[in-house]
Amino acid sequence: MAAKKKADTDSALNASLLHSMILQRRFEEKVAEAYALGKIGGFCHLYIGQEAVSTGTLSLLRDDDYVLTTYRDHGQAIVRGMSPRSVMAELFGRIDGCSRGKGGSMHMFDRHVNFLGGHGIVGGHIPMATGVGFAIKYRGGDQCVICYMGEAAVNNGAFHESLNMAGLWRLPVIYVIENNRYGMGTAMERASSTKEMYKRGDTYSMANAEVDGQDVFAVREAMQEAIDRARKDYSPTLLEIRTYRFMGHSMSDAASGTYRTKEELDTYRKRDPINLLKAKMQTDKSLSDADLAAMEAEIAAVVQDSWDFADASPEPPLEALYEDVYVETTT
């Protein structure tokens, strides 16, 4: 509760949270534009609608903590501190991309900010995050690792194997289910035997909670508790953060019409996390129209700069094809 009160009153913090969410939104709107122009290829999954989850959780991490996520990774990469330039250049498949143009949309990596990917196999990164938690404890550190996943991954064996080990061995892992209600076109009710996914934490002796993912403060409050638990005695947490994606599953999927109705989408859009925070700040008069306009202008410039940078960056040279398959062993 203390954390929530502080957040409510701290207008500088609110402004930075708002900035973080709008930056993701505008960045990804630009990504959609670049995709339509053929500057970005392959699978590309937008995060629009879910920004309060990345912003809320990552705004509380320390630099020496670790982050692993899925293919829906642009927003988290930027919030974690990767430059929009390096993320956009990666999307464009250019040499200045964070993964030198070898990963693309689904494989953002940056070891300087402990961003350990960007993984394309549903559930595959959950054991890895568990291993990072193991390494933290092995070394006696007090960091934690956050592992994002979609609600569909919860039905995957890797999830259960991981949570069992983290619960058994007490590992400082914060598993975050971003429940956006769909795995591609399959509604969670059609895929999961329970609608209360956070309760699966009980099975693995793990603290767990259900969180409103459109309210950035609610996300922060739950995340802070999870972090404290991890740092204090290596206790893991399972958070189910309820959110919604406003776009299709990937660029090839319409936002609505097949597996969900336009009405449903419109209903969820009313709880746009950015608008909710804006409204709150406008009510308590901590955000003027001029402030907002300045913020939007600054962000638009950053996003445009990332595009210009990516567009000017060369493609990887042909020699790069055979690089990075093996490293030279030095020890």
Binding site: P127, A129, T130, G131, A135, A158, E161, M165
Partner: peptide, 11 residues
């Protein structure tokens, strides 16, 4: 699957 992945993460 789980402990192989723990190895990957630790590495």
């Amino acid at each position: 699957l789980g402990f192989a992945g723990v190895g990957v993460g630790a590495a």
